[in-house]
Design a protein around this nucleic acid. Structure first.
Lengths: 229, 229
DNA sequence: CTATGAGTCCCGCAC
DNA sequence: GTGCGGGGCTCATAG
């Protein structure tokens, strides 16, 4: 089966209602309509479309009082109505229907996996207990232990903002509630730790471990050069 | 000045490096290149482009060993390289250069403003002290007082998830630290309060106020029908 | 410039 | 279906 995409360049206006409400005045723009029901209105700037709808919309075409084409895209909770005032072009092109999409590298999940196999970056004597250890407040990325600490709660991020510290805080509290007599520590492991996050971590006595950006590089020696606060 | 957009439909592959790393195998896709330096690669599904770069990239065009066009988009910290294997079409169209963009309605900021002028939805006797009241943990959306409570910390959301409750918790703690002898309450005001958020709020003794979806409608009578937990 | 938070966030995955 | 969290989130705004 061949998938197609319809590309319209036209002077258009649009009204969206659903999670919010937006109106778009008439200007010349580019409209992409995909076979899966997605629709995008792009102007001359930026990566985000002005208006859009996700897959599984139903398209109804009507005419308004002045004979202009009106495209109505409806889903259960939302609808986007596009009025075409002046169509410059309207082409439909075939596309691959088997696009495997992006291959990602360096994701948080890969970083977590790598850390699980390189626990020495957290310092000597750290032993992994479990990945995605469940708590009342959600799963702990990496749960470890040390000779002098029963539970080391490790939160893994690529970029760590203060929200990551709050997350650790909730996990640590949850583990302390579960094991009132155990010693529990919180650790943040991230490639990019923002200053505000570091500051908060210091206040909460959570250790911060900065992972070198070259962590995937097997030629790079680690030598346990993790930065500790 | 006329802004243009270049629309290429071609069999293409792409490599991105920057905040992460991605590779995209060769398939037929649609490439949008905007005058501001933005570039998007769209396949046949979804609202999100497979690969993209924001504004202010520099485009360099080369040829690889087999004479294929290679488009390199570079910014300071990232770069995207697209190889065109088989070009079906390559058109450049003029667009409006004065697109005023979306007019939004029903945003959180408008909701906050509306609530500030309709404090009665929180119950009788609520008096607004300040919008965006600053604390150590960030600004409180609405700070109010009541005859029997010195500080009512109100967090406004369109959609409230558990994260909103954690936010209130931090604000309430911050205000309690600042005024140890004052009485402080936390309140969540949202159009859509998710069950997990409500559950958490109950546990923390924060009041939940559900704002009717018709809050902007002036014909709708309010009658203080706020839902209290 | 960085930091912060909203967004029609989108999206995949688990339940 | 809904909830939850990652993402190259994007984008606007404030400092």
């Amino acid at each position: 089966m061949i998938e197609v995409m319809r590309i319209i360049t036209a002077s258009c206006s649009a009204v969206y209602t659903g999670r919010g409400n937006t109106t778009l005045p008439t200007r010349k723009r580019v409209i992409l309509i995909k076979d899966d029901g997605s629709v995008l209105i792009h102007n001359e700037t930026g990566t985000k479309p002005l208006n859009y709808m996700g897959a599984k919309t139903v398209l109804t075409v009507k005419e308004d009082g002045e004979g202009k084409q009106v495209l109505m895209f409806d889903s259960r909770r939302e609808n986007l109505t596009i009025t075409l005032h002046d169509i410059s072009s309207d082409t439909t092109i075939p596309l691959s229907d088997d696009d495997p999409g992006l291959e990602r590298d360096g994701t948080e999940s890969q970083l977590q996996e790598w850390l699980a196999e390189n626990m020495e970056v957290f310092g000597p004597d750290h032993e992994l207990i479990q990945r995605e250890h469940p708590t009342l407040h959600g799963p702990v990325d990496l749960m470890a232990k040390r000779g002098d600490c029963d539970y080391v709660v490790i939160e893994v991020k690529r970029v760590a903002t203060p929200a990551a510290i709050h997350q650790i805080n909730r996990y640590v509290e949850a583990v302390r509630e579960e094991f009132p007599d155990a010693t529990v520590e919180g650790v943040l492991a991230a490639i990019d730790i923002r200053p505000k996050a570091e500051e908060l971590a210091l206040k909460k006595s959570f250790k911060c471990v900065t992972i070198p950006a070259t962590w995937r590089d097997p030629t790079e020696r680690l030598d346990n050069r993790a930065v500790e606060l």
